[in-house]
Amino acid sequence: MDGGKFLVQLLKIVLGFILGLVACGLFLAWGFFQAAHPDENPIAFGAMVGTGLVGASVVGAAAFVPAGILIAIAELARLRGIVFHLVASGSIAFLLWTVGFDGETGDLRPGSVVVLAAGFLAGLVYWTIAGRTSGCWQPERPKEPMSGS
């Protein structure tokens, strides 16, 4: 194990997680409130940004444990694909959104599409910063010679 690469990867994981949460929170605030352009209504836009940042901290507190488990799995298994990270983040977002919802009609909770999109965006941001290099700190696996039968 390369200690320097491990430390750099840890820093990228923390940075990617935080920026993914900020992107998620801002997208949720925009998706649910749809404030006007800053030139038209700067107060509403400022409130939307503030709500997005507070929302990012709330989402981060709720998603910390499941995201940490999935990040550890990705690091140990060297899962670098964008599909894994998008599915993982979207699943976490959808799970957190539907917990406690008593959908008697069998329909999705209102706003589920916005939440899924925010989760996918968070996963994309995380993958761009840290997910593409998952497991880079581990020693290379020995190549097995191909048998010529």
Rank of each mutant, 00 (worst) to 15 (best):
G123Q: 10
F101M: 07
A74G: 09
P42H: 10
A29M: 08
F45T: 14
P142K: 10
G81L: 03
T51I: 07
T51A: 15
F101H: 14
P139T: 01
G123P: 08
W127T: 01
P110W: 07
G16Y: 03
T105D: 15
L86T: 03
I71H: 01
G52L: 04
Q138I: 07
I71W: 03
G100V: 10
A36E: 14
G103C: 01
L86G: 09
M146A: 15
G68T: 01
D2C: 07
L86A: 06
G119Y: 05
V54S: 10
G46W: 07
A61W: 13
A44F: 09
A93I: 03
A62P: 04
V87Q: 02
P145L: 09
Q138H: 15
V125C: 04
R132N: 12
P139Y: 05
F33E: 08
D2L: 04
F33M: 14
P38A: 11
A63C: 11
G4K: 05
G111L: 04
F33G: 05
H85A: 01
I92A: 08
F94I: 14
F6H: 12
R141K: 15
A44T: 04
F32I: 03
G3I: 00
A93F: 00
V99G: 00
E140N: 05
G60Q: 09
T128Q: 11
P139H: 04
L86C: 01
K12A: 13
G131V: 07
A130S: 13
A88Y: 04
R141V: 09
D2G: 05
H37M: 14
V113M: 13
G135V: 02
L79M: 04
D2Q: 05
T128V: 15
F45A: 13
V8H: 12
P38R: 13
G119H: 07
